[in-house]
């Protein structure tokens, strides 16, 4: 789903029937990296959610149900069912922005309960405006919560190379460009100079935040001075 450039990150999980815990190993293999949760009689998710086997329930940004279907009735082996579910998920992942201010509606409602806030506003007075707080997944209501960006020094192939780690909103509601420069004048994001280390790591903290790391290549790091900057551009 990430490759489909979704605005909001789409996470898929499975939930096993409480009585079937002993068979979980049948589901686990190296090709399946998605969470497979084990229901219990105490939690009784199947009961509380009124589930029948092979139901799919999709929740929105506030965990409200927006779609429910059953894959026995609509087998994904049928291409039209497969495409229908895919397109429904992609549709749901497009963040609404009714007032077209660059801040997704759900983010504004989630933090402020309305759409009256502006991208340039700074309600908590911490120097980071709302658009910055959104893109870097910090709290717009706490001056103690600022965008998290930190640097580090790595030594790939024995040569020093700068790295940067930062927190960001998961998905592609905002686009990030990470660049390096030897002189603060000429900037580049060429992969021969700077590259992403690993994947964008979801923090699963309920704020939509993820963490990502970029690092200069050993070639770039071998230069006498180096700088890294993170730019946020419109999606």
């Amino acid at each position: 789903m990430n490759a489909a450039n979704t605005g909001l990150r789409v996470e898929i999980l499975g939930i096993n029937m409480a009585s079937q815990a002993e068979y979980n190993q049948l589901v686990v293999d190296s090709h399946n990296v998605l969470p497979w949760l084990q229901d219990t009689s105490e939690q009784d998710v199947w009961g509380k959610w009124r589930i029948i086997q092979r139901d799919v329930v999709v929740l929105d940004s506030f965990n409200r149900p927006v779609l429910k279907d059953n894959l026995t009735q609509h087998d994904l082996g049928q291409v039209q069912n497969y495409n229908a579910l895919k397109n429904a998920l992609l549709q749901l992942a497009v963040p609404a922005d009714t007032d077209k201010d660059g801040l997704p509606d759900d983010w504004e409602y989630g933090w402020f309960g309305n759409l009256a806030v502006t991208p340039t506003g700074d309600e908590d007075g911490d120097g980071a405006d709302n658009l910055t707080e959104f893109t870097f997944s910090s709290s717009p209501k706490s001056p103690a919560s600022l965008p998290f960006i930190d640097g580090y020094l790595a030594r790939p192939a024995g040569k020093p190379a700068l790295g940067v780690i930062f927190r960001r909103f998961a998905g592609n509601a905002a686009q990030f460009v990470v660049e390096t420069s030897p002189d603060l004048i000429n900037w580049t994001n060429r992969t021969s100079e700077i590259f992403r280390v690993g994947t964008v790591r979801n923090l699963y903290d309920g704020t939509g935040a993820a963490e990502v790391r970029y690092q200069q290549t050993s070639t770039a790091g071998a230069k006498p001075a180096g700088f890294i900057r993170v730019r946020v551009v419109s999606p």
Binding site: L8, G14, N16, V56, G206
Partner: peptide, 20 residues
């Protein structure tokens, strides 16, 4: 421990299967 709360401000899809 996984909760739907972890996935706020994202879209989450839950498939209810039977491992057996």
């Amino acid at each position: 421990t996984v909760s739907p709360r972890d996935y706020r401000l994202q879209i989450s899809a839950y498939y209810f299967g039977d491992a057996g």
